[in-house]
Design a protein around this nucleic acid. Structure first.
Lengths: 236, 236
DNA sequence: CGCACTCTTGAGGGAGCTCAACATTTGTGG
DNA sequence: CCACAAATGTTGAGCTCCCTCAAGAGTGCG
């Protein structure tokens, strides 16, 4: 079920709609022409791709103020409403203009999408189930604010498909984290983080390397294999 | 070792350098200020992040004409030369302008980076080692052209850190693919694909869903939980 | 109140990791 | 150019973690 709340016309004439989708609604499918990109006002959206064997890879969860569906040509992912959700739907052309309605440069929208993809890679890069689940919980807590309990509106199946695990392993791991006193459960969707430090160390927050790679030697010398390519593409 | 080949000045005054890095050189590190973005002329570059337990997540291999290091503020990844490499180094400001030197919109650069990240997620999303390695080989063959043997300039360790496996499993799996007649090995770095169709089915090329999600019901009706957020952010 | 859906938990097996040894390739200095 | 050393790659054996199969418990909705 989709509801139109409001339609707004930009100076340029592009039309931005404010829409409400009910839980479970598909916003767009993999392969659909990417006519719009989306910004969440409230609720949660998931994006996913399907592998040939039928299994689903969830590529991201998106919260209020997050942006998704930023793609050129066709959507490479499917987007669905995890909860009832209100979104602001922007025509894709709008990206071409210098800035979005907030005055932020259009690139920031893409960079946020890129950051989201990197977050997903980071999660999947963890070795064990405990690592991944802990990293997932930490990421959500940091995103939403861990203050007095984290809501997990998505199902265990969603989490499993996001982390590359089975629903069973996710459930077992979460139970185990609770048993070890790192979190407390108040129903499956309501998690309270008791030991953030412990969770973070389990999550393996990346080692912060913050120094500059520094000096470069700028020495003019003859090249080797790349000269041909070089000549093939002369520059002004 | 870094060598400067040429320095080119754009109309806008920004300076693009053509540089050669020898094998193994670090181009930039995680946390470095992102002053440049890079375009490969020849050779191969890898990007990676490190987890707290010391293990490395390789987030991408980049070939000629690929773009990497496109980030806002600081680099979130480390970039290293897999082989000797010649790159064109662009000041980050250049992104702000409407187009790069090729006349392509700056967004395409970001979108290519995003596509690269999605490719990485897709690889990590595969269930078994055979799936991942097959998908990896197929991706490289498609990228480079499978014509008469695929070169794998990266080490087994690189592949393992990219696919979330160990070097042992990667080696075993590649040997196994050869034993099953899907590929032929001519030294560790030189692979010839014998049965592309078989590899692709192992890789689990994503199910192509290509229909449009179609009609939307646009019904004006009162909202629920999002009204507050709505009012909190009035639009022109 | 009962059905459907989600979540939890247990038992058993298999894929991939660890540990270990050996083979091959690459790089270096005589 | 060869000899040797170092790095990289291959392969085996055993074990661990997660997946599979299975059953039961909790929750929400008509």
């Amino acid at each position: 079920v989709i509801t139109l709340y409001a339609r707004e016309t930009e100076n340029g004439g592009s039309v931005t709609d404010l829409l409400r989708y009910s839980k479970g609604t598909v916003l767009y499918r993999e392969g659909d022409p990417a006519r719009f990109w989306y910004e969440i006002v409230s609720g949660m959206v998931r994006t996913c791709r399907f592998h040939a064997d039928g299994h689903r890879q969830l590529t991201g969860f998106f919260y209020a103020d997050d942006v998704f569906g930023v793609e050129h040509g066709r959507h490479s992912e499917t987007a669905e409403a995890v909860t009832a959700v209100v979104i602001r739907r922007h025509p894709h052309d709008e990206l071409i203009t210098a800035s979005t309605m907030d005055g932020t440069p259009s690139q920031q929208v893409l960079e946020r999408a890129l950051e989201s993809a990197r977050q997903c890679i980071f999660l999947l890069g963890h070795r064990t189930a405990a690592n991944r689940v802990a990293a997932f919980l930490v990421a959500i807590a940091e995103r939403i604010g861990a203050g007095e309990g984290v809501q997990l509106p998505m199902t265990r199946t969603d989490i499993a498909d996001h982390l590359g695990l089975t629903i069973h392993t996710v459930s077992r791991t979460i139970s185990d984290l609770a048993r070890r006193g790192l979190i407390a459960l108040n129903g499956p969707q309501k998690v309270r983080i008791l030991d953030m430090r412990g969770l973070q160390s389990l999550a393996g927050e990346e080692a912060a390397v913050t120094y500059d790679s520094g000096t470069e030697a700028l020495i003019a010398s003859p090249g080797t294999e790349a000269i041909d390519r070089l000549k093939a593409r002369p520059r002004p």
